[in-house]
Design a protein around this nucleic acid. Structure first.
Length: 334
DNA sequence: AAGACGGGGTC
DNA sequence: GACCCAGTCTT
């Protein structure tokens, strides 16, 4: 690996990011959780707001999970913030409220896996533990022209071992992790990589052979399952009927009366079985919402109702409860 | 090993 | 429309 060129390139070209201006291990922890499967530009506003409200591990540990969800609503993958909350409480209970400088102790904290443990060790504590994310997979698979299918766990683990050797030999774990990820994010991009400006262009086998787009090799994703819903925005006593979700998906977020059905009549019948006598006023614009593993096709109606039954409750102010983007799209229409 | 888990950006 | 992203946990 051409470490010096890589590090020089990083020092000259790095983006000015708030989580690179701190050496507070907790702040770096929060940033790494928010960066899981999330682009920098998307997480930035959440990062600032989150640390303003929860500036220390103690503040986060004693916060209410519903309030935390409200703070991060719109970013997605909300389970990571339930885990982060548990993680803060775990650090209070097991490590006197301070992040330990030990890879295997960090790995035991809820919500922290191999990547995040390596990122915290190398970025916050300057210790040589590998942080192998999508960027590093892309950079190394191109530089070395690796033929493995990186959809598979075993191949990611193999590459993590290679990344471990590289960071151990780097003499600067902090610069190694930061520069590899910065390179993957800004130069060694998924499509149209900027190889002309890459500090590794002379050692990169994919660039030399002009086959960058073939790497990393990834087996195709499964097609998403589609679900048809009928959703009713029902006014009741100057509020709206809503339910706090108890499913794993969007757990703790509020939704209107939403029923899985192929037809309006079928949905209304199911609503009756729940004790809801719905009077429809308008049909609104249908909504398509894409998740990682499924697609919701939502037929949307506005109506009234003269009664309320469990588990529904009356929500008077949408700003007081966690609202996911799929419901925000619905609220926008009223 | 495979599936669950959000939302936004890119081409 | 299809793919990807500074992944982790559960089954």
């Amino acid at each position: 690996m051409a470490y010096l060129r890589l590090f020089d390139w990083y020092q000259t070209n790095k983006r000015d990011l708030p989580f690179r201006k701190t050496d507070n291990p907790y702040h770096i922890w929060v940033s790494e959780i928010m960066l899981q499967q999330t682009q920098v530009d998307t997480m930035l506003p959440f990062y600032d707001r989150f640390l303003t409200i929860y500036p220390t591990i103690q503040d986060l540990a004693r916060a209410d999970i519903d309030e935390i969800l409200k703070v991060v609503q719109g970013i997605g993958y909300y389970r990571r913030f339930r885990m982060l909350h548990k993680g803060a409480q775990y650090v209070i209970d097991h490590h006197d409220g301070k992040l330990p400088e030990d890879y295997f102790k960090i790995l035991k904290i809820p919500g922290i896996g191999a990547y995040t443990a390596g990122a915290i060790m190398s970025i916050a504590f300057h210790k040589p533990y590998p942080a192998t994310d999508g960027n590093v997979i892309r950079v190394l698979s191109r530089v070395k022209m690796l033929e493995d299918d990186f959809r598979l766990d075993k191949n990611k683990k193999k590459l993590n071992e290679m990344n471990k050797e590289l960071i151990e030999n780097s003499n600067n774990p902090y610069l190694y992790t930061q520069s590899m990820m910065e390179l993957g994010a800004t130069v060694c991009k998924v499509s149209n990589p900027l190889c002309d400006t890459c500090p590794l262009q002379e050692v990169c086998l994919a660039n030399i052979n002009n086959v960058q787009q073939n790497y990393p090799k990834m087996s195709p994703l499964k097609t998403k399952k589609e679900i048809q819903y009928f959703t009713f925005i029902l006014e009741y006593k100057e509020g709206f009927l809503m339910r706090k979700r108890t499913e794993d998906l969007l757990h703790g977020f509020y939704e209107f009366v939403q029923i899985e059905s192929d037809s309006l009549n079928g949905a209304l019948t199911q609503a009756q079985d729940l004790g809801l006598e719905i009077q429809i006023l308008d049909e609104l614009q249908p909504i398509k919402h894409v998740f990682t593993h499924m697609i919701w096709q939502i037929n949307l109606y506005r109506g009234t109702i003269s009664n309320i039954t469990s588990p529904y409750e009356i929500v008077h102010d949408f700003s007081q409860v966690p609202i996911a983007t799929v419901v925000k799209k619905q609220i926008k229409q009223i």
